[in-house]
Design a protein around this nucleic acid. Structure first.
Length: 552
RNA sequence: GCGCGAUUAGCUCAGCUGGAUAGAGCGCUGCCCUCCGGAGGCAGAGGUCACAGGUUCGAAUCCUGUAUCGCGCGCCA
């Protein structure tokens, strides 16, 4: 719709030049936006104002020339010049009727686009260390990453969801030691549990389970036993994590092991490449990467003076490997407390000859867990943290996902368990889902009354003349470009706000007008309209991984 | 100290990449069920967009500075 208007304006502009109404010959990019005030039409353009300088004419003069050349156009019902030189366009109702046909015809596919042109994108998210169950903070990153991936898919990108498993470093070694200590404890030994060990109760469970599955471990020497404990612990915990994520509606395409980078010798080969490019140097017995060349405030260590690689080293190899796999756009979803890590990672990407924008890091701010307005504290080390699955089980998957997506992900989020659980007005999830269920209910009633359902493309919509009906159609028409905007900016909250607006408009309409009325032409047209509402609600909810129930 | 991010209604937050009279939800006040689901709707009150400059036709949005808050600054991961 917008494109059609854009083209029309372009033609008119050309005509202005041809007829010497305008003489600069400078064709600016035509900006078209949806005005906030409906009195200003369906679309407006600031073209005349942006051209004023080059033309050396007042914006209104330019606007008048433009409007004159626009002439009569079948899909525009009104064109007027307003304010300092805006040109406001009001489209003929038939335009909006076409949108409805389009929605019904496309159904689940309405809102999909090809702006991504099939480019390969990887979204890496969660990637929590496999040393304990996921807690609530991971949940937000999980949902945001998943929704971003879905939105990018809808926008025509070829998306892969990946979980990076940190199964090589210190943390998992500590996990192994913790399990080993508990095993010895359970066999009657008195042990001093290490200060840096994992305190959680689940460590005891793992120790007991390992003892049961493989009693020989207890008889092994310290080194071999902790190794076995580590492998066992990581495997079991990853099972929990993937089950929790599945329960939350999240399925990864790939689980990428950090250890595999070492096993394949990739860390060394990638570090050698960096050395060849002169990007690394030795000092104080350690190997450093010149990240300062690319805006970092300090060079970073790759290999410690004791000869062991840092976490950064494998992360460098990992990111190089991502690009080697052919991803053109790499998106990392991190906790905001890692933001200091961004410049050095971008430095790596730049050093490898990729534009730094090819790596996008989404920083997910903290979640403050509340219950009835009172803060819940959590500390992973102390062991009494709140797990993701507890929260999902308590408040439900849909409410949980929706709550995590309600705000921009880079701003802090208060998550109140009681509020999220409440099935009432206070809770926007149900408000939106209720709108969907209501349309379904109307259709159930229609069926009971023996009303025939409207057929796609074969409905006379001319009875849809009420402002609220056209408003609804316009909101539905905006959906595809909203999805594109959300994809370009990796901002799933835009979908949430869109849904709330659409649901509000529908509820208002529902209260004001009946769909099933005496006049059958009106009934048919209105059924068609609300079917469009239902379709778009369902499609948008689907992007967020939230159900669109037929009854509640 | 340096860096990153924030500051919008009583509270929690949007603001579509610089547009016209700054919007929602909650809370507050007053209304609407002979009505397809009241888990709903309508109306009202509530603002110096932290502060001070700057850029231009035009700024909540961009730039500079100040204040306050949060986070990060390991040869940890």
């Amino acid at each position: 719709m917008k494109d059609r208007l854009r083209q029309q304006i372009g033609n008119a502009l050309q005509a202005c030049f041809d007829n010497n109404l305008l003489d600069s010959g400078v064709v600016p990019e035509v900006q078209i936006e949806v005005p906030g005030n409906p009195d200003h039409g369906d679309f407006s353009s600031n073209l005349a104002m942006t051209m004023a300088r080059a033309e050396k004419k007042s914006p209104r003069q330019i606007a008048e020339a433009l409007v004159a050349e626009l002439g009569n156009c079948d899909f525009l019902s009104k064109v007027e010049i307003a304010g300092p030189g805006f040109v406001n366009f009001t489209l003929a109702p038939t335009c909006w009727y076409e949108v409805l046909d389009d929605i019904i015809a496309k159904g689940k596919k309405y809102g999909l686009s090809q702006v991504g042109q099939g480019r390969k994108v990887q979204v890496e998210f969660v990637s929590a260390n496999p040393t304990g169950p996921l807690h609530i903070g991971h949940g937000r990153g999980a949902v945001v990453g998943d929704a971003v991936a879905s939105i990018l898919q809808a926008a025509g990108f070829d998306v892969q969801r990946e979980y990076y498993v940190n199964d090589a470093g210190n943390q998992v070694a500590i996990l192994g030691r913790s399990i080993w200590m508990r095993m010895r404890e359970q066999s009657g030994e008195t042990v001093v549990f290490p200060d840096d060990g994992y305190q959680g109760e689940y460590i005891r469970d793992l120790a007991a389970k390992l003892c049961e599955e493989d009693p020989t471990v207890a008889g092994l020497g310290e080194d071999e036993a902790t190794k076995r404990c580590t492998v066992f612990g990581v495997r079991k915990i990853l099972d929990w994590i993937s089950a929790d994520l599945k329960n939350f509606g999240i399925i990864f395409d790939n689980w990428f092991s950090e250890q595999s980078l070492y096993d394949r010798g990739m860390v060394n080969t990638e570090l050698a490449k960096l050395a060849d490019k002169g990007l690394s140097y030795e000092q104080d017995g350690a190997l450093w990467l010149r990240t300062t060349d690319y805006g970092d405030d300090k060079d970073r260590v790759l290999i410690k003076s004791d000869g062991s690689p840092t976490y950064f080293a494998s992360d460098v190899a990992y990111h190089m490997e991502k690009f080697d796999r052919g991803f053109e756009r790499v998106i990392d979803v991190w906790g905001a407390d890692h933001h200091g890590y961004v410049p050095r990672m971008k430095a790596v990407v730049a050093g490898l000859g990729h534009p730094p924008e090819d790596l996008e890091v989404l920083l997910i701010q903290m979640v403050n867990l509340l219950r009835d307005g009172k803060a819940y504290t959590m500390g992973k080390r102390s062991g009494n943290f709140i797990t993701l699955s507890e929260v999902v089980d308590e408040v439900g998957r849909d409410a949980c996902r929706f709550s995590f997506l309600m705000r921009r992900s880079d701003s802090q989020l208060d998550f109140d368990l009681e509020l999220a659980k409440r099935q009432s007005t206070d809770n926007p999830v149900y408000y939106v889902q209720y709108a969907h269920a209501r349309v379904c209910s109307i259709y159930r009633n229609a069926e009971e009354q023996g009303v025939t359902f409207p057929k796609c493309g074969a409905v006379d919509l001319s009875s849809l003349t009420l402002p609220e009906e056209l408003m609804l159609a316009k909101q539905l028409a905006r959906y595809p470009e909203m999805v594109v905007g959300a994809a370009q900016n990796c901002e799933p909250h835009r979908v949430v706000y869109y849904l709330q607006e659409l649901a509000a408009q529908f509820h208002s309409y529902y209260n004001r007008k009946r769909v099933l009325v005496e006049d059958s032409a009106t009934t048919q047209a209105r059924l068609y309209l609300v079917d469009g509402v239902r379709t778009v609600l369902a499609n948008a909810l689907n992007l967020l991984g939230v159900d669109a129930p037929e009854r509640m």
